[in-house]
């Protein structure tokens, strides 16, 4: 009896097909990313003053985080761009792989492959910068990761954040197929603002006269008051529950919703 939900063989065939169909686009994106990384490395090298003898890794982390997030968002938003045109839509849905394999395949390409390729490019760029700086300017590299990543915010937590960002754009990609990145980006902003305003409305109804200012609240966490007790903070158990939901339930929920949304699509 054939397994209609998941087969590793079919997933492999699906990934091979996807990579073969789009290898030029992938090569182009990777080349651009590598070129941009090496470009930044060269700019960094030429701007490095002779008296700067230390290159702190923590100084390089902000651009790394920004570009990683941007790349994840861009690629995740294009996860289902095959659905933009009727002919490609038909091709996508009629390919003999299960819905799960198709969605999982897109996830693997847009998150796992992208993460590996991005880090490879980032590593090559960093090594280029490091080699040039050490060879020609006598600089040394200081690996001060702990300025950004520490026991309360580990690299694993950072990856979780990126996974959350990916899940949001991945889910958004089931709604928008053309110009999906800006559309999803603004949709997320609108949803976040709407949530914040809803929270403001509720807090104003409940604590209207006690609020420090009409907007002084952090959704799911605290309300700032003009009373002696300055802030009402959620109890620890609720805070931990909220954090657990955000860390471990929200992301899978977005994946599951994406799966069902793709399964429900028809060709008009």
């Amino acid at each position: 009896m054939q397994n209609n939900f998941f087969s590793i063989n079919r997933l492999g065939m699906y990934l091979r097909k996807e990579i073969s169909d789009n290898y030029k686009a992938y090569l182009l994106t990777t080349s651009l990313m590598l070129a941009a990384g090496i470009g930044f490395a060269l700019i960094g090298f030429f701007n490095l003053h002779q008296w700067e003898k230390e290159i702190k890794v923590s100084d390089l982390l902000p651009p790394y985080i920004i570009f990683f997030a941007l790349y994840i968002g861009l690629d995740a938003s294009r996860s289902f761009n095959a659905l933009a045109k009727t002919e490609r839509r038909m091709d996508f849905f009629l390919l003999p792989a299960s819905k799960f394999e198709k969605v999982l395949g897109q996830f693997l390409i847009t998150f796992v492959f992208v993460t590996i390729v991005f880090h490879l490019c980032a590593w090559i760029s960093f090594k280029t910068y490091q080699t040039l700086a050490i060879t020609y300017k006598g600089a040394t590299v200081v690996y001060d990761w702990d300025r950004i990543f520490h026991p309360k915010f580990t690299y694993f937590n950072f990856l979780q954040l990126m996974l959350g960002l990916h899940a949001a754009f991945f889910f958004g990609a089931t709604f928008f197929y053309k110009f999906s990145f800006p559309k999803i980006f603004f949709s997320i902003l609108i949803i976040l603002f709407a949530g914040w305003f809803l929270n403001i409305a509720i807090t104003n109804i409940l604590f209207g006269k006690s609020l420090h200012d009409w907007f002084t609240n952090i959704p799911f966490f605290a309300i700032f008051t003009n009373k002696q007790q300055f802030a009402y903070v959620v109890p620890e158990w609720l805070g931990r529950t909220n954090l657990f939901i955000a860390q471990f339930l929200l992301i899978p929920a977005l994946w599951v919703l994406s799966y069902f949304r793709i399964g429900d699509k028809e060709i008009q």
């Binding site: 209609n4 073969s20 002919e87 792989a97």
Partner: peptide, 29 residues
């Protein structure tokens, strides 16, 4: 749209989509 169904039915649509690859590559994948 189960794989067991899709691997036994083929639709030749009026408007076609073909990826930017050679015949051999299309066949292989």
């Amino acid at each position: 749209r189960n794989p067991s169904f899709l691997q036994d039915i083929f639709l030749v649509p009026e408007e076609l989509y073909l990826p930017k690859v050679k015949i051999k590559q299309y066949l292989a994948t």
